[in-house]
Protein backbone atom coordinates (compact mmCIF):
# COMPACT_ATOMS: atom_id res chain seq x y z
CA UNK A 1 0.00 0.00 0.00
CA UNK A 2 1.53 3.23 -1.10
CA UNK A 3 0.16 5.13 1.88
CA UNK A 4 2.16 3.28 4.52
CA UNK A 5 5.12 5.62 4.04
CA UNK A 6 5.41 8.01 6.93
CA UNK A 7 6.38 11.51 5.90
CA UNK A 8 8.22 12.80 8.91
CA UNK A 9 5.43 12.01 11.36
CA UNK A 10 5.75 9.15 13.79
CA UNK A 11 2.46 7.75 14.96
CA UNK A 12 3.84 6.98 18.38
CA UNK A 13 4.77 10.62 18.86
CA UNK A 14 1.16 11.62 18.25
CA UNK A 15 -0.71 9.12 20.38
CA UNK A 16 -1.84 10.29 23.79
CA UNK A 17 -1.26 13.94 22.92
CA UNK A 18 -4.28 16.20 22.85
CA UNK A 19 -5.35 17.65 19.52
CA UNK A 20 -6.39 21.23 19.02
CA UNK A 21 -7.86 22.89 16.00
CA UNK A 22 -5.20 25.03 14.33
CA UNK A 23 -6.06 28.67 15.03
CA UNK A 24 -7.55 30.83 12.28
CA UNK A 25 -4.73 33.36 12.57
CA UNK A 26 -1.40 31.64 12.85
CA UNK A 27 0.71 34.32 14.45
CA UNK A 28 -0.06 34.39 18.16
CA UNK A 29 0.86 38.07 18.77
CA UNK A 30 -1.38 39.19 15.91
CA UNK A 31 -4.18 36.98 17.18
CA UNK A 32 -3.99 38.45 20.67
CA UNK A 33 -3.66 42.01 19.41
CA UNK A 34 -6.79 41.64 17.32
CA UNK A 35 -8.69 39.99 20.15
CA UNK A 36 -7.71 42.54 22.78
CA UNK A 37 -8.20 45.37 20.30
CA UNK A 38 -11.74 44.20 19.60
CA UNK A 39 -12.58 43.91 23.29
CA UNK A 40 -11.14 47.34 24.06
CA UNK A 41 -13.01 48.88 21.14
CA UNK A 42 -16.30 47.33 22.24
CA UNK A 43 -15.85 48.56 25.81
CA UNK A 44 -15.01 52.08 24.63
CA UNK A 45 -17.83 52.12 22.12
CA UNK A 46 -20.46 50.95 24.58
CA UNK A 47 -19.26 53.27 27.31
CA UNK A 48 -19.46 56.26 24.98
CA UNK A 49 -23.11 55.60 24.31
CA UNK A 50 -25.38 57.85 26.24
CA UNK A 51 -28.78 56.31 26.35
CA UNK A 52 -31.50 58.17 28.13
CA UNK A 53 -33.37 55.12 29.34
CA UNK A 54 -36.23 57.03 30.88
CA UNK A 55 -36.78 58.72 27.51
CA UNK A 56 -36.61 55.34 25.80
CA UNK A 57 -39.05 53.93 28.31
CA UNK A 58 -41.41 56.83 27.74
CA UNK A 59 -41.09 56.25 24.02
CA UNK A 60 -42.04 52.59 24.21
CA UNK A 61 -45.68 53.52 24.46
CA UNK A 62 -45.32 55.52 21.24
CA UNK A 63 -43.51 52.63 19.63
CA UNK A 64 -46.37 50.38 20.56
CA UNK A 65 -48.83 52.84 19.03
CA UNK A 66 -46.77 52.74 15.86
CA UNK A 67 -46.90 48.95 15.72
CA UNK A 68 -50.64 49.02 16.36
CA UNK A 69 -50.98 51.60 13.60
CA UNK A 70 -49.73 48.99 11.14
CA UNK A 71 -52.80 46.90 11.79
CA UNK A 72 -55.02 49.90 10.96
CA UNK A 73 -53.11 52.09 8.50
CA UNK A 74 -54.79 55.36 7.69
CA UNK A 75 -54.87 55.83 3.94
CA UNK A 76 -57.72 58.33 3.88
CA UNK A 77 -57.16 61.37 6.06
CA UNK A 78 -54.09 62.55 4.12
CA UNK A 79 -54.91 60.76 0.91
CA UNK A 80 -54.31 63.74 -1.38
CA UNK A 81 -50.85 64.35 0.14
CA UNK A 82 -50.00 60.67 -0.15
CA UNK A 83 -51.13 60.45 -3.77
CA UNK A 84 -49.27 63.61 -4.70
CA UNK A 85 -46.09 62.48 -2.93
CA UNK A 86 -46.17 59.00 -4.40
CA UNK A 87 -46.75 60.32 -7.93
CA UNK A 88 -43.79 62.61 -7.51
CA UNK A 89 -41.66 59.74 -6.20
CA UNK A 90 -42.62 57.52 -9.10
CA UNK A 91 -41.97 60.28 -11.63
CA UNK A 92 -38.55 61.03 -10.15
CA UNK A 93 -37.74 57.32 -10.13
CA UNK A 94 -38.70 56.74 -13.75
CA UNK A 95 -37.06 59.81 -15.25
CA UNK A 96 -33.87 59.54 -13.23
CA UNK A 97 -33.48 55.85 -14.02
CA UNK A 98 -33.91 56.47 -17.76
CA UNK A 99 -31.54 59.42 -17.83
CA UNK A 100 -29.11 57.69 -15.50
CA UNK A 101 -28.93 54.62 -17.73
CA UNK A 102 -28.51 56.73 -20.85
CA UNK A 103 -25.53 58.52 -19.33
CA UNK A 104 -24.12 55.39 -17.68
CA UNK A 105 -23.67 53.44 -20.89
CA UNK A 106 -21.06 55.70 -22.52
CA UNK A 107 -19.34 56.17 -19.17
CA UNK A 108 -19.27 52.40 -18.63
CA UNK A 109 -17.69 51.93 -22.05
CA UNK A 110 -15.14 54.58 -21.14
CA UNK A 111 -14.45 53.00 -17.77
CA UNK A 112 -13.75 49.53 -19.14
CA UNK A 113 -9.98 49.21 -19.28
CA UNK A 114 -10.07 46.70 -22.12
CA UNK A 115 -11.74 48.96 -24.64
CA UNK A 116 -11.08 52.57 -23.57
CA UNK A 117 -7.85 54.54 -23.97
CA UNK A 118 -6.10 55.56 -20.76
CA UNK A 119 -7.13 59.25 -20.42
CA UNK A 120 -10.79 58.48 -21.05
CA UNK A 121 -10.60 55.53 -18.71
CA UNK A 122 -9.25 57.69 -15.88
CA UNK A 123 -11.81 60.43 -16.46
CA UNK A 124 -14.72 58.00 -16.44
CA UNK A 125 -13.42 56.19 -13.35
CA UNK A 126 -13.14 59.56 -11.62
CA UNK A 127 -16.77 60.37 -12.34
CA UNK A 128 -17.82 56.97 -11.03
CA UNK A 129 -15.78 57.35 -7.82
CA UNK A 130 -17.24 60.76 -7.09
CA UNK A 131 -20.76 59.56 -7.64
CA UNK A 132 -20.25 56.51 -5.45
CA UNK A 133 -18.49 58.29 -2.63
CA UNK A 134 -21.19 60.93 -2.13
CA UNK A 135 -24.27 59.84 -0.27
CA UNK A 136 -27.55 60.54 -2.08
CA UNK A 137 -28.83 62.70 0.74
CA UNK A 138 -25.75 64.91 0.69
CA UNK A 139 -25.96 65.32 -3.06
CA UNK A 140 -29.64 66.16 -2.66
CA UNK A 141 -28.84 68.84 -0.09
CA UNK A 142 -26.37 70.46 -2.48
CA UNK A 143 -28.73 70.25 -5.43
CA UNK A 144 -31.56 71.75 -3.38
CA UNK A 145 -29.28 74.59 -2.39
CA UNK A 146 -28.35 75.19 -6.02
CA UNK A 147 -31.57 74.47 -7.93
CA UNK A 148 -34.15 75.22 -5.28
CA UNK A 149 -36.74 72.95 -3.66
CA UNK A 150 -38.72 70.45 -5.72
CA UNK A 151 -38.46 67.25 -7.72
CA UNK A 152 -35.84 68.59 -10.11
CA UNK A 153 -33.22 68.35 -7.38
CA UNK A 154 -34.37 64.82 -6.58
CA UNK A 155 -34.30 63.85 -10.23
CA UNK A 156 -30.74 65.15 -10.62
CA UNK A 157 -29.62 63.43 -7.42
CA UNK A 158 -30.96 60.06 -8.44
CA UNK A 159 -29.61 60.35 -11.99
CA UNK A 160 -26.20 61.17 -10.58
CA UNK A 161 -26.30 58.25 -8.15
CA UNK A 162 -27.46 55.90 -10.91
CA UNK A 163 -24.37 56.71 -12.94
CA UNK A 164 -21.96 55.64 -10.24
CA UNK A 165 -23.80 52.42 -9.59
CA UNK A 166 -24.64 51.32 -13.10
CA UNK A 167 -21.50 52.46 -14.87
CA UNK A 168 -19.26 50.72 -12.34
CA UNK A 169 -20.99 47.37 -12.50
CA UNK A 170 -21.42 47.56 -16.25
CA UNK A 171 -17.77 48.45 -16.76
CA UNK A 172 -16.75 45.43 -14.70
CA UNK A 173 -19.02 43.30 -16.84
CA UNK A 174 -17.46 44.65 -20.02
CA UNK A 175 -14.02 43.92 -18.63
CA UNK A 176 -15.08 40.34 -17.90
CA UNK A 177 -16.60 39.74 -21.30
CA UNK A 178 -15.59 37.02 -23.69
CA UNK A 179 -12.69 38.43 -25.71
CA UNK A 180 -12.93 35.89 -28.52
CA UNK A 181 -16.44 36.94 -29.48
CA UNK A 182 -15.48 40.59 -29.54
CA UNK A 183 -12.32 39.87 -31.53
CA UNK A 184 -14.29 37.84 -34.03
CA UNK A 185 -16.44 40.87 -34.77
CA UNK A 186 -13.41 43.13 -34.95
CA UNK A 187 -11.73 40.80 -37.43
CA UNK A 188 -14.60 41.31 -39.85
CA UNK A 189 -13.37 44.89 -40.29
CA UNK A 190 -16.14 46.53 -38.27
CA UNK A 191 -15.83 50.15 -37.19
CA UNK A 192 -15.59 50.94 -33.48
CA UNK A 193 -19.30 51.64 -33.13
CA UNK A 194 -20.22 48.54 -35.11
CA UNK A 195 -17.86 46.56 -32.97
CA UNK A 196 -19.50 47.81 -29.78
CA UNK A 197 -22.92 47.13 -31.27
CA UNK A 198 -22.22 43.57 -32.43
CA UNK A 199 -19.32 42.36 -30.31
CA UNK A 200 -19.89 43.98 -26.94
CA UNK A 201 -23.55 44.89 -26.62
CA UNK A 202 -25.01 41.37 -26.98
CA UNK A 203 -22.75 40.12 -24.21
CA UNK A 204 -23.65 42.75 -21.65
CA UNK A 205 -27.33 43.23 -22.55
CA UNK A 206 -28.80 40.72 -20.04
CA UNK A 207 -26.75 42.22 -17.24
CA UNK A 208 -27.65 45.77 -18.29
CA UNK A 209 -31.35 44.95 -18.15
CA UNK A 210 -31.01 43.20 -14.80
CA UNK A 211 -29.01 46.04 -13.28
CA UNK A 212 -31.38 48.67 -14.66
CA UNK A 213 -34.37 47.09 -12.99
CA UNK A 214 -32.43 46.68 -9.78
CA UNK A 215 -31.50 50.35 -9.93
CA UNK A 216 -35.13 51.31 -10.59
CA UNK A 217 -35.93 49.53 -7.33
CA UNK A 218 -33.14 51.36 -5.47
CA UNK A 219 -34.11 54.72 -6.93
CA UNK A 220 -37.67 54.26 -5.77
CA UNK A 221 -36.52 53.46 -2.25
CA UNK A 222 -34.18 56.46 -2.25
CA UNK A 223 -36.83 58.77 -3.68
CA UNK A 224 -38.82 58.11 -0.54
CA UNK A 225 -36.22 59.87 1.62
CA UNK A 226 -35.15 62.72 -0.61
CA UNK A 227 -38.23 64.64 0.48
CA UNK A 228 -36.68 64.95 3.94
CA UNK A 229 -34.26 67.51 2.56
CA UNK A 230 -36.78 69.14 0.23
CA UNK A 231 -35.93 67.29 -2.97
CA UNK A 232 -39.46 66.14 -3.75
CA UNK A 233 -41.30 62.85 -3.37
CA UNK A 234 -43.16 61.08 -0.61
CA UNK A 235 -40.47 61.82 1.99
CA UNK A 236 -41.89 65.27 2.74
CA UNK A 237 -45.32 63.82 3.49
CA UNK A 238 -43.72 61.14 5.61
CA UNK A 239 -41.71 63.71 7.53
CA UNK A 240 -44.79 65.79 8.26
CA UNK A 241 -46.67 62.73 9.42
CA UNK A 242 -43.84 61.86 11.80
CA UNK A 243 -43.72 65.40 13.15
CA UNK A 244 -47.43 65.26 13.91
CA UNK A 245 -47.16 61.71 15.34
CA UNK A 246 -49.74 60.57 12.79
CA UNK A 247 -48.62 56.96 12.92
CA UNK A 248 -51.63 55.78 10.93
CA UNK A 249 -50.49 57.83 7.95
CA UNK A 250 -46.88 56.80 8.47
CA UNK A 251 -47.92 53.15 8.45
CA UNK A 252 -49.96 53.69 5.29
CA UNK A 253 -47.01 55.28 3.47
CA UNK A 254 -44.57 52.60 4.62
CA UNK A 255 -46.95 49.87 3.54
CA UNK A 256 -47.25 51.45 0.09
CA UNK A 257 -43.45 51.66 -0.18
CA UNK A 258 -43.00 48.03 0.88
CA UNK A 259 -45.67 46.82 -1.53
CA UNK A 260 -44.18 48.77 -4.44
CA UNK A 261 -40.68 47.46 -3.66
CA UNK A 262 -42.00 43.91 -3.47
CA UNK A 263 -43.83 44.35 -6.76
CA UNK A 264 -40.66 45.70 -8.39
CA UNK A 265 -38.63 42.79 -7.06
CA UNK A 266 -41.19 40.32 -8.34
CA UNK A 267 -41.19 42.04 -11.73
CA UNK A 268 -37.43 42.11 -11.91
CA UNK A 269 -37.33 38.40 -11.11
CA UNK A 270 -39.61 37.70 -14.07
CA UNK A 271 -37.75 39.97 -16.47
CA UNK A 272 -34.33 38.69 -15.44
CA UNK A 273 -35.48 35.11 -15.91
CA UNK A 274 -36.73 36.01 -19.39
CA UNK A 275 -33.62 37.77 -20.68
CA UNK A 276 -31.28 35.00 -19.53
Amino acid sequence: MSGSVDIGVKLSSRLGKPWRKPPFINSAPLRWTLLIGTVVYLILAFSSFEVNWSRVYAGLERGWRFIVAFSQPDFTSRSSDIIEGMTESVIMTVTSTVVGIAISIPIALGAASNIAPMPIYLACRFIISISRALNEIIVAILFVAIFGFGPLAGFLTLSFATIGFLAKLLAEDIEDMNKVQAEAVKSTGASWLQWVNFGVQPQIMPRLIGLSIYRLDINFRESAVLGLVGAGGIGATLNTAFDRYEFGTVAAILIIIIVVVMALEYLSGIIRARVK
Binding site: S4, I7, L11, L15, K17
Partner: peptide, 21 residues
Protein backbone atom coordinates in the same frame (compact mmCIF):
# COMPACT_ATOMS: atom_id res chain seq x y z
CA UNK B 1 -8.36 11.55 23.93
CA UNK B 2 -9.25 8.02 22.82
CA UNK B 3 -11.05 9.46 19.76
CA UNK B 4 -8.09 11.65 18.90
CA UNK B 5 -5.70 8.69 19.20
CA UNK B 6 -7.93 6.53 17.06
CA UNK B 7 -8.11 9.30 14.45
CA UNK B 8 -4.31 9.44 14.33
CA UNK B 9 -4.09 5.66 14.04
CA UNK B 10 -6.54 5.64 11.14
CA UNK B 11 -4.76 8.51 9.42
CA UNK B 12 -1.50 6.66 9.81
CA UNK B 13 -3.08 3.50 8.46
CA UNK B 14 -4.22 5.26 5.26
CA UNK B 15 -0.92 7.09 4.97
CA UNK B 16 -2.07 10.64 5.63
CA UNK B 17 -0.67 11.26 9.11
CA UNK B 18 1.20 14.33 7.88
CA UNK B 19 -2.03 15.86 6.54
CA UNK B 20 -3.93 16.02 9.84
CA UNK B 21 -4.14 19.81 10.05
Amino acid sequence: QSDVDEAYRLLDRVGLAHMAD
